[in-house]
Design a protein around this nucleic acid. Sequence first.
RNA 1: GCGGGUGUGGUGAAAUUGGUAGACACGCUAGACUUAGGAUCUAGUGCUUCACGGCAUGGGGGUUCGAGUCCCUUCACCCGCACCA
Length: 990
Amino acid sequence: MQYQFNEIEKKWQKYWEENKTYAAKDNSVKPKYYVLDMFPYPSGAGLHVGHPLGYIASDIFARYKRLQGYNVLHPMGYDSFGLPAEQYAIQTGQHPAVTTKVNIEGGVDKQGNVIPGYRNQLDKIGFSFDWDREVRTSDPNYYKWTQWIFKQLFNSWYNNITDKAEKIDTLIEKFAAEGNTNVNAVCADVANFSADEWKSWGEEEQQKMLMNYRITFLSDTWVNWCPALGTVLANDEIKDGVSERGGHPVEQKLMRQWSMRITAYAERLLSGLEGLDWSESIKDVQRNWIGKSVGASVEFQVQNSTAKIEVFTTRPDTIFGVSFMVLAPEHPLVNKITTVEQKAEVEAYQKAASLKSERDRQSDIKNITGAFTGAFAIHPFTGDKVQIWIGDYVLASYGTGAVMAVPCGDQRDWDFATHFGIEIKNIFKDKDISEGAYAEKDAVIAHSDFLNDLPAKEAIKKAIAEIEKRGLGKGKTQYRLRDAVFSRQRYWGEPFPVYYKNEVPYLIDDKDLPVVLPEVDKYLPTEDGQPPLARAKKEDWNVTCPGERMEYNTMPGWAGSSWYFLRYMDPTNDNEFVAKEKVDYWQNVDLYIGGAEHATGHLLYARFWTKFLHDLGYVPFDEPFQKMINQGMIQGNSALVYKVIPDTTNRRQEDYIIYVSANFSSELKEIDKKFKVNELTPRAKEIYEFIRNKEEEGVVDYFTKFGEEEFQLNYSSSLINVDINYLDGDKLDLDKFRNWRAEFKNAEFIKEENGDFIVGREIDKMSKSKYNVQTPDELVEKFGADTLRCYEMFLGPLEQHKPWDTQGITGVHGFLKKLWRLYHDDNGFNVSDEIPSNEELKSLHKTIKKVKEDIERFSFNTPVSAFMICVNELTALKCNKREILEPLLIILAPYAPHIAEELWAKLGNTESITYAVFPKHNDAYLVESNHKYPVSFNGKMRFMLELPADMSKEDIEKEVLANEQSQKYLEGKAPKKVIVVPKKIVNVVI
RNA sequence: GCGGGUGUGGUGAAAUUGGUAGACACGCUAGACUUAGGAUCUAGUGCUUCACGGCAUGGGGGUUCGAGUCCCUUCACCCGCACCA
């Protein structure tokens, strides 16, 4: 009886759906476990084999946890707002909501392409998702709550004293009672005001003041404007100076935008990483992105001026080494302090710097440039005059846009000083700074007054104390993290629950949420450059706008994905974003699986929102994802064919395109240059003759003749990608290839001796344009979902990147067939109730032990091998005993749930295997009476010796030395030492 | 430059605490059965040597009775970040 995987899989997928087998219970006596996959964007291209890799791993873990008695939450949904659907809408006029629906549910797109649909593709793989909890960020019932969270952020401020976000009401009370003098908040630069002043202000003025404190706030900020996409981008959406999506140029533009005061959370986002079970590299990326530096801010008085220059330094211990100062060219003080003599030079420099893009400045770091302002600052301790320069190695956007330059301790300052011939003071004891700065923090300070003889680390503390004592500045911590821009000038995103009255923003009432995305005539900006939503008239919106207009921006992609894991706990709640008792039960995500590319985007924002919701008491935890695994990328394995077009002067070359099997590429090179026919290697001669024959047919001359029997082939060649579906291994199916496109119809092929045509290989990203996309659907059709699941895991460690290769899939498929045969004979299902032998029990129990241990350490590839070994052993033992075969199904079920269910049912079980009990291994079956000792001499293994497992060390030593084989290796000498490790090895040292 | 990661047969890989390196699978070779579905089974397969043996976990060194595993050093590739004061 054959293993009919297609029938079995359809049957069980239907059963699971009808019986809601994977529905999670919101209250249960079982312990909870939350397994989540990163939110997918449902693109029209559909799934390729790389996408489900992580889903398979998380599904195995979810199923394993159910078998271990956990109540498992394992949901799936869609991050369905986003650029591709909108770009498609701009091109075709089709509403992005329609495109999105087709991409998820399947159908035909506007150009007539059949879209399989994410959901259909996922269903075929047999995932144990609780689909009743599905969410889509573009669903008004979902984004109602994204808008609600936005309102909470708007109505909150960050109190540095309590170190958490608080309701804005508490701030308003303070303002009314005592003004802002005693308020310690994360906010914009604001002047002090009294309670009376506050009360004297009108509504509008008060609102404007509050905007400086709100956690989401409206302000004019320099943003990354991407003209091609017609929108602003966050820092994490830019890679190498161009937009991450599409690779378009980005420029700086001052725009009125919503931002999120994520900087308030910088310290907590940093320290919170400690307790997370994430990879070191992702944590490092986040640490780097947050960029904490501890130091001091110090003020330098400008000579003959009231102006002061504030600098931030991490090395206040080196303050006596300051020999000049550098301001960013954009620094506001530059124009004030520059002397008349230096004015021309400084302005020229400023102009040159402003013309350079951010990217140019960064790529041009070796070129040291700057200009002297002619002004001097007074050193706060020594009273010395120090020159003030401008230079574009100082960034306007970091710190105060100014540095105190310490050339002996900072390489950039050293380079600058050396280049412009500025004095370099050495304030380090016994350090040579003639060749470069000494930047390590382990020096001892010298020539520095009260800091002399102190090691740097102590000097830093002392310097800060002194700076504060003299009122020159204070200890300060600086972060690289910037507030996150939250507006997008796009259509397909969450509308803000905001309207404007006199250009002051106000919130739409909770009872009127959601503010639904209005219909517009076009998905493009208006003629005067307003975002697409400006096309909607006031009455097109579902809410009555109490002001003159609604907000025209929409929220960025990360809005919906920053809290989706909470909505899965309570997806249909109309009264709250998530009910308290549900979030109290489910808590945070126990295991999160997804790509590493979201390190500075989604993963940081979701942590920020979680901490914020925690501060307001809405969620009981302040980290969303406790453990995370980042699956590696599956790369495409492109197939390349060498296309050779012999050139002639008098003939259309396309008539004679020749495709050359990959193994001939070196031979092709032989005839590429001048050659003599009789000197060619046999294979190269083959090509020569092949083309020569063509030549005679066509009266053309592909070969240039140089002398007697000396030729050179004239040709142009290129490598073309062929569809990997036309391959069998590396062999190209020539009939399929000829039928692919008209131009291949009459193609000529130079094949291997055995008649095969071999393609070249290259590892690329999997993409349609390379014809190297493997869809899971094809493999499920051919081999079944269980095979695909096991194979994707069998490929190697989850985190590792690996090229896709279907070669090995037959091995995994064969294993499942072999498993099937254990339960069947020629007449059908046949399992006996006989008592199993010790050998059979041992095989099963060692597999139980290994599979459990491996899954628990997230080693998903090794259990597949363990299953194979077990099935091989049981096949060899001809074991068909229930007591072995029934538990085997349970441990296999997470990997191959369909075949497990089928055989489980055949064994007479009436309930799904999903909630069976994962068997416990019994050590008694694993103990061996004998152990085969590898016997080594001087560390080299020479022979095996089987001895009783409980034999004493002394007896083992005697047995080994008495063994006749040992005599050969001892060569009559007495051993110096014999190392015996019971049940491991014996090593004889001679 | 800084940070993180990876280097093991023809290929994907295994070896969890230092203890038989290469499990399991692909591929390949030979054979059996059947002569078609990409079926199934058996044997072999790191390199080298006729063999005894020797050599092998990117390279070099060290610790150890014993190192893929620990330490030092070096090379290659991949991924982040990058004038961050």
